[in-house]
């Protein structure tokens, strides 16, 4: 899967969350672009990147319930009517569009009666409408609330949750999670120092066995259900 991450942030170097996410990027399969860092947007190049991607991610901090201005400028410049739908070719159709949004307020603030009184889905509705217009599939939003308050353990978990959001098949389920890890395990074992590889292989074999056991249990249950429906 090819994923294009478009980051909108006016002060990227000062953002600990954006720096953290950049460090957390998967080793392959991802093109990362900082929109505010472009002096002039090369429309052809931007549109080519979009055509080549399977999944497009808009990544930004929430400013006044919306993305920073650079994303809107990118939309207005790159997403021309002709490109998106004007010639009825819909080059973005079937691609996925997701949002990684950071907020300074906790998740509970983003609901009716909460401190912000607005859900993130509501705030991001214009972007979802763009996805719909382009015949793209809108992904559930990946929100990171109050990054600065995360514990070390939560940050470690965030690394992999973020990587999975960028590169794992949707919808997110135990089956797709297993497949994501299974795909990466051989490479991760190869990276281990020689004296740790046996441990890595052992862990991988237990994981594979548990995956196979679960498949078998699921099949057994499906069979029982089928028979009881007769």
């Amino acid at each position: 899967m090819k994923t294009l991450v478009l980051v909108a942030h006016p002060h990227l170097a000062d953002s600990s969350s954006q720096q953290f996410l950049k460090e957390s990027l998967p080793d392959s399969g991802v093109v990362w672009e900082w929109l505010d860092g472009q002096q002039v947007l090369d429309v052809d190049q931007e549109q080519t990147q979009l055509r080549q991607a399977d999944r497009v991610i808009f990544q930004f901090p929430l400013y006044w319930f919306a993305a920073p201005a650079s994303l809107k400028q990118w939309e207005d410049t790159v997403l021309t009517r002709k490109f998106v739908y004007g010639d009825h070719r819909y080059p973005l159709a079937g691609k996925e569009l997701g949002v990684v949004v950071t907020t300074g307020m906790p998740g509970k603030a983003f609901q009716r009666g909460g401190a912000e009184g607005l859900t993130l889905d509501a705030a991001l509705a214009p972007l979802a409408a763009v996805a719909q217009r382009a015949k793209m599939t809108w992904l559930p939003t990946f929100a990171i609330h109050q990054f600065g308050y995360l514990t070390e353990t939560e940050k470690l978990q965030l690394v992999v949750r973020y990587q999975r959001y960028l590169t794992q098949s949707q919808p997110d389920s135990l089956t797709t999670r297993q497949a994501w890890f299974a795909e990466r395990l051989p490479g991760m074992i190869d990276r281990l120092p020689v004296d740790q590889q046996a441990a890595g292989k052992l862990i991988a074999s237990v994981f594979d066995q548990k995956s196979a056991d679960l498949d078998q249990l699921t099949d057994t249950l499906a069979l029982i259900k089928e028979q009881s429906d007769d």
Binding site: E23, L156, Q157, V159, V160, F181, M188, F207
Partner: peptide, 10 residues
């Protein structure tokens, strides 16, 4: 850090 994160997530 990211390698540590992978194994703990597994």
């Amino acid at each position: 850090f990211t390698d540590r994160a992978f194994w703990l997530a597994l």
